[in-house]
């Protein structure tokens, strides 16, 4: 079996791949932002014992953690297009659907990995030494101030290792975008396969592309972890 990569010299295919990679990176970045928003808010509700919000948060976490992100994506895609919210483009006056495939992918990534992030951040918050929290209370910080200025900053640093694998999982999951026809790197790959029939070569290349993207993500997380390290907390 010989591998033929001559098609890679074609500028059209190169452009498809590069556009796909930038879409995948953009999807992942937006997904990561949404994941952190959901994770921090959910963990805050659970940690601060907010009355009436704890049970809904638990239900949300259990629902999205225990179901496949792919089914969530299809469900969001079909339900939101049924509801059919549209935005009016100010430039052309045309109405464009608010929930495109792209939005649905970002939402499903944020919801699935966000539900996992809630648990990760919560365990980080629980790992903050109780003396530190008591010290903050003794200095006159309110419960909310303690959370905002002491528990959250330290807790987030303590949960960096599991969060890194959650981010890698989010990037990997973003490849599902192809199944709702978002032009990510997998989509570019399927298009190239349709034209060249070099299925195996294309897939192996995409495999490497994802390994590089996740590898870079892990490196960035390590740099951030080293930059924000507080001596004495975490390794």
């Amino acid at each position: 079996m010989t591998l033929d990569y001559a098609w890679l010299l074609d500028p059209l295919y190169q452009r498809w791949l590069l556009n796909g990679i930038s879409t995948t990176v953009l999807l992942s970045l937006l997904g990561i932002v949404l994941m952190f928003v959901i994770g921090i808010i959910g963990a805050a509700f659970l940690h601060l014992n907010v009355r009436y919000l704890q049970t809904p948060t638990t239900i949300f976490v259990e629902l999205f953690r225990n179901t496949p992100p792919l089914v969530q994506l299809f469900f969001l895609y079909f339900m939101l297009s049924d509801i059919g919210l549209t935005l009016t483009d100010p430039a052309t006056g045309r109405s464009i659907p608010l929930f495109t495939g792209f939005t649905c992918v970002v939402l499903s990534l944020g919801l699935y990995n966000g539900a996992i992030a809630v648990e990760i951040i919560r365990s980080g918050l629980l790992a903050v030494p109780s003396q530190t929290v008591e010290g903050a209370r003794a200095l006159g910080y309110t419960r909310l101030q303690t959370f905002r200025h002491v528990e959250l900053p330290i807790g987030l640093r303590l949960c960096i290792p599991p969060m890194a694998s959650n981010i890698v999982s989010l990037i990997k999951t973003s490849s599902q975008a192809v199944l709702v026809a978002v032009a990510d790197v997998m989509y570019g790959a399927t298009q190239i396969m349709l034209e060249t029939f070099r299925n195996l070569e294309v897939m192996l290349l995409i495999w490497v592309v994802y390994l590089v993207i996740t590898g870079v993500a892990v490196l960035i997380v390590r740099r951030i972890a080293a930059a924000v390290r507080i001596p004495g907390y975490g390794s």
Partner: peptide, 16 residues
Amino acid sequence: LRNSPWLVVLYAMLYL
């Protein structure tokens, strides 16, 4: 193996 997306591995197995 840990860093490869499942979907890509599945597609690759389909052709490999």
